[in-house]
């Protein structure tokens, strides 16, 4: 089942395309890693796909009314804003509170519990979110997105700035969710993690899709080093492909 359908999606700033004629399908069960150098248009592509930015072309999400959109796709923005000293439970509850009448049903409560458990936050419910460490805050915000229990999840650099354990845990959650039948789009700079956990990689450069294939194929493609300006070491292990950037090529 296709969850995300982008057709000729284009977004211009000052006349220049930032996202350039992107056509992309994401199906249930896929964990798509969106990679590309800084300024390639990853964040803009995600925001346009969600209808947060005006664009040309079409996105199946952007066509939906706001409420329905929030039931189809959850979004984890790159900036990890928590503006007021609210509890972890309150943050995660936000993932459910806006659906329906605003009253929490037992089912909502269960979804919140599942999200907290999944992110290992069960003992954190009553802690003040803004007083937690950066890694813990990131987990809280992911739990909020998970609580929405949408078929599709778009996460913008969810592991940036996290310690290795948190990075692995987070990516493992996304991989598990995909295996359970959800669709995941995650933008990520760590090509090793992308190789390890994604089912498919989409390489974006100057707003265009350059490569779109399984990790093994993308990471061994010579065009990768053109886009990133690096060369890396790729190996196959029993746990899947491993990629390590080695040197700058330009």
């Amino acid at each position: 089942m296709t969850l995300l359908e982008l057709d000729h999606l284009t977004l211009r700033r000052a006349g220049k395309p930032v996202v350039d004629d992107v056509t992309l399908r994401v199906a249930a069960g896929e964990c798509v890693g969106l990679i590309g150098p800084n300024g390639a248009g990853k964040t803009t592509l995600m925001r346009a796909a969600l209808g947060l930015l005006p664009h040309e072309g079409s996105s199946n999400l952007a066509r939906l009314p706001l409420g329905e959109r929030a039931r189809q796709a959850a979004f984890l923005p790159q900036s990890r804003d928590i503006h007021w000293p609210v509890t972890v439970d309150a943050v995660v509850t936000l993932g459910r509170a806006l659906q329906g009448s605003g009253k929490l049903h037992p089912e909502d409560r269960r979804a919140i519990d599942r999200a907290l458990m999944r992110m290992g936050l069960d003992g954190y419910r009553d802690r003040i979110a803004t007083a937690l460490s950066g890694g813990e805050q990131a987990r809280v915000l992911i739990a909020r997105a998970l609580a929405q229990e949408t078929p599709l999840l778009l996460a913008d650099e969810p592991v940036a700035g996290l310690d290795p354990e948190a990075q692995l845990r987070t990516m493992q959650v996304f991989a598990d969710l995909a295996r359970e039948g959800r669709g995941i789009v995650v933008s990520i700079h760590d090509l090793g993690l992308a190789a390890r956990f994604c089912t498919r990689l989409v390489v974006l450069d100057h707003g265009r899709i350059v490569l779109d294939a399984p990790p093994r194929a993308v990471l061994s493609d010579p065009r990768l080093s053109e886009v990133f300006g690096i060369r890396g070491f790729l190996a196959d292990t029993p746990d899947g492909p491993v990629f390590q950037p080695m040197a700058v090529t330009r």
Binding site: R47, L50, L52, L66, G67, R69, A70, R71, A73, A74, F75, L76, P77, S79, D81, L94, G95, L98, Q99, L141, R144, Q148
Partner: peptide, 8 residues
Amino acid sequence: DAARSMGV
């Protein structure tokens, strides 16, 4: 962004 994606 988060608020809008949650349907606000």
